[in-house]
Simulated assay, not measured.
Amino acid sequence: MKKEMKRLLSLACAMVLAFPVIGYAADAEVTQKMPVSVEADCTVTNNSDKELLIENIVIKEVVPDAFSEGNTYSFYVKNMEFTYVDMMKSSGDLIFDSDILQEGELVFTVKEANDQEIETISLSGVLMTAKYVLPVGTYYLYMTSSNMENEKIPVVFDFIKVENQVDFTKKKLDISIGMSEETLQVNGEKKALRVPAYISDRGYTMLPIREVTEVFPGVKVLWDNEKKEATILYGYDYVSIIAGANVMHINGKENILKNVAEVKDGRMFISLRDVCRICSVPTEDVHWDAQTKTVSINTYVY
C-alpha cells in the first residue's frame, strides 16, 4: 500500500512539473512564428490614474518581408484605449498608414516596404486612457496581424503594471524660486536649476517648465526638439505648448498664455501664472516678495 501511495505521489509531482514546461513550449512556438518583435519598457502606474504615457514602443521585423504591402498590424491592451501618438518613425523604405479604431486599438497598414531589409516602426509619446478604474496587476500588449490570420497574441508581457491606489492624503508643498538664482527650494531642500528664472519684457515671472512642474507628484514632461514643443501630463490633463506660441492646449482646448512661451539656453519658460494653472495651484497659494525678487508657492498636493 505504501509503495502504491509513493508511486501515485511521484506521478502527481511529475504532472505538476510538466505543465509549466508545456506552457513555455507553447509560448516559444508562438514567438518563433511571430513576423515581428515588439519592445517596450514596463510602464508603472496606479489605479487612480485615468491616463498614462508610454514613452517608447519599437516594432521590428523578424524576417525582411514581414512588412509586406497590405499587411495590417493591430495593438490592443485589455481595459485600455490608445488615444494619441506624439511621434511615429519608420526605417528604410517603409511607408505605412496608422489609425486608432473606435475600440481603442492602434492599427498600422503597410503601404510600401523593402522585402530585402529588416525595417522598424518606432513610436514615442503614446497616450493611453483607462476605460474605468484598473484592477491591480500586470497588463499585456496584444497584437494581431493579417499574415497570422489575425490571431491575438501577447507581444509584451509586462507592458503596464498597475499598483495600489495612491495615498489621497494631501501633503504640504513649499516651493521658493529667486530670480536669477541657480537653485530652487522644495520643502527646504535645494534643487539645481540649469537656467535661472527671470522677469520677461512684459513684466511676467518666467519659470523653467520642466524643473518647476516636475516638482509636483506625478508630473511627466516630454520635449520634442524638432517641433520645439513641450508636453506635460498631470493627472487627467494633457498639456502641449509650442515655443513662441501665446496659447497652450489643455486636453485639446486652447488656452491663452499670460506671456508667450520662450526658450532660453535650451529650456522652455512660461509664466508663473500659467505654471499654476497647469498644476492647479490656487491664486492665494502664490506669493511674491518684491524686495528679494522671490516667488513662493505654498500649497497642498496629493
Score class of each variant (00 low, 15 high):
residue 125 G to I: 04
residue 151 E to W: 04
residue 36 V to S: 01
residue 76 Y to S: 12
residue 170 K to N: 06
residue 121 I to L: 02
residue 266 G to E: 03
residue 48 S to I: 13
residue 154 P to R: 01
residue 36 V to P: 02
residue 169 T to L: 06
residue 28 A to K: 10
residue 4 E to L: 12
residue 263 V to S: 11
residue 45 T to K: 13
residue 75 F to W: 04
residue 55 E to I: 06
residue 81 E to G: 08
residue 179 M to L: 15
residue 103 E to L: 08
residue 285 D to N: 15
residue 168 F to Q: 11
residue 9 L to D: 14
residue 245 A to N: 09
residue 146 S to M: 00
residue 189 E to W: 01
residue 255 N to Y: 11
residue 87 M to K: 13
residue 64 P to F: 00
residue 91 S to P: 01
residue 27 D to F: 09
residue 288 W to P: 04
residue 52 L to K: 06
residue 50 K to L: 13
residue 129 T to D: 12
residue 82 F to I: 03
residue 203 G to H: 00
residue 301 V to A: 02
residue 266 G to Q: 05
residue 133 V to I: 13
residue 256 I to C: 07
residue 133 V to K: 14
residue 202 R to E: 14
residue 225 N to S: 15
residue 184 L to M: 12
residue 142 Y to P: 05
residue 110 V to A: 00
residue 247 V to P: 02
residue 167 D to N: 14
residue 37 S to C: 08
residue 94 L to P: 04
residue 139 Y to L: 13
residue 231 T to G: 05
residue 216 F to D: 01
residue 74 S to T: 09
residue 12 A to L: 15
residue 49 D to E: 14
residue 163 E to G: 02
residue 21 V to I: 11
residue 44 V to T: 10
residue 46 N to T: 14
residue 53 L to D: 09
residue 38 V to H: 05
residue 248 M to R: 06
residue 145 S to W: 03
residue 83 T to I: 10
residue 40 A to T: 09
residue 188 G to M: 05
residue 53 L to N: 12
residue 269 F to Q: 07
residue 233 L to F: 14
residue 46 N to D: 15
residue 130 A to R: 02
residue 157 F to D: 13
residue 298 N to C: 10
residue 286 V to E: 12
residue 256 I to R: 09
residue 123 L to C: 02
residue 222 L to M: 13
residue 81 E to W: 14
residue 238 Y to T: 09
residue 124 S to A: 05
residue 271 S to A: 08
residue 135 P to C: 03
residue 234 Y to R: 05
residue 199 I to A: 06
residue 140 Y to R: 15
residue 46 N to R: 14
residue 197 A to M: 04
residue 6 K to I: 13
residue 40 A to V: 09
residue 9 L to A: 15
residue 172 K to E: 12
residue 207 L to M: 09
residue 195 V to P: 00
residue 267 R to G: 06
residue 300 Y to D: 07
residue 171 K to L: 01
residue 263 V to A: 10
residue 67 F to R: 03
residue 156 V to A: 07
residue 128 M to K: 04
residue 224 D to V: 02
residue 26 A to R: 11
residue 235 G to R: 00
residue 118 I to T: 06
residue 245 A to R: 07
residue 10 S to M: 15
residue 235 G to K: 05
residue 139 Y to C: 08
residue 22 I to T: 05
residue 101 L to E: 10
residue 246 N to C: 09
residue 259 N to E: 15
residue 57 I to Y: 08
residue 118 I to H: 03
